[in-house]
Structures are given as C-alpha cells and as structure tokens.
C-alpha cells in the first residue's frame, strides 16, 4: 500500500476525484494517474496476464512495462500509469486477454 504524505492529501489544496473500481466507489486526487490511485487504495494487483493468468501490478510507472493494464471506461488493456484519473471513471481489473470490442 502507498500512503499519501500529509501535504499531498490536503483537501484544501487538492481536488478529490471519484471513480469506481470493479463496481465499488473509490476516491483519488487530481494529478493521480489511474495506477497511482489504485496503489494508494492498496491495490497492488491490477490484472491477470494474457499468457498464464498470473497476477501483476504496476512495475515501472512510466509507460514502458505494460504491467499496469486495466479496463478504463470499457476499453481494455489501457496503461493505468499513463491515464490521468478523471471524475466518474469506471476502472476494472484486466482479467487476462482483452475481449474483442472491449
């Protein structure tokens, strides 16, 4: 689990963002990427791999490792570490291979 330093979660200076994670309400801050918001919620696994189904979580946080893949607003295999968190976003675990059209 990642913890926000006090100055980084001062609600006076930072806007909170509401989204859903696998159907449940969740909260992060403006400036978070989707992957960062998940880590702050204690979710270190965000997907199962397309090859073996093993659990994975973000590794590089800079867009190169493709291990932070999640479903965002119905679109699969998105790099959570590159997508800024937005109000009302629907984020889901990427369960193995992407489905066609999803």
């Amino acid at each position: 689990m990642f913890q926000r330093l006090p100055e980084a979660c001062d609600s006076a200076s930072r806007t909170s963002i509401h989204f859903t994670l696998d159907g449940l309400p969740a909260e992060g801050f403006a400036g978070d990427t989707v992957a960062a918001a998940l880590l702050a919620l204690g979710r270190d696994t965000c997907r199962q791999t397309a090859v073996s189904g093993s659990p994975r979580g973000p590794y590089c946080m800079m867009g190169v490792c493709f291990d932070c893949l999640v479903v965002i607003d119905g679109v699969g295999n998105r790099q959570g570490c590159l997508v800024p968190l937005r109000e009302g976003m629907v984020v889901e675990t990427q369960a193995g291979k992407r489905e066609i059209g999803r």
Binding site: F2, Q3, F29, G31, A36, L39, A40
Partner: peptide, 11 residues
C-alpha cells in the same frame, strides 16, 4: 514517480 507526481510513499 509516485512520490513526485502524487506525493505517495510505500508503507
């Protein structure tokens, strides 16, 4: 990156 961009530290 988490520290810089979101002010987060591992717990």
């Amino acid at each position: 990156t988490l520290l810089k961009a979101s002010g987060m530290v591992p717990q």
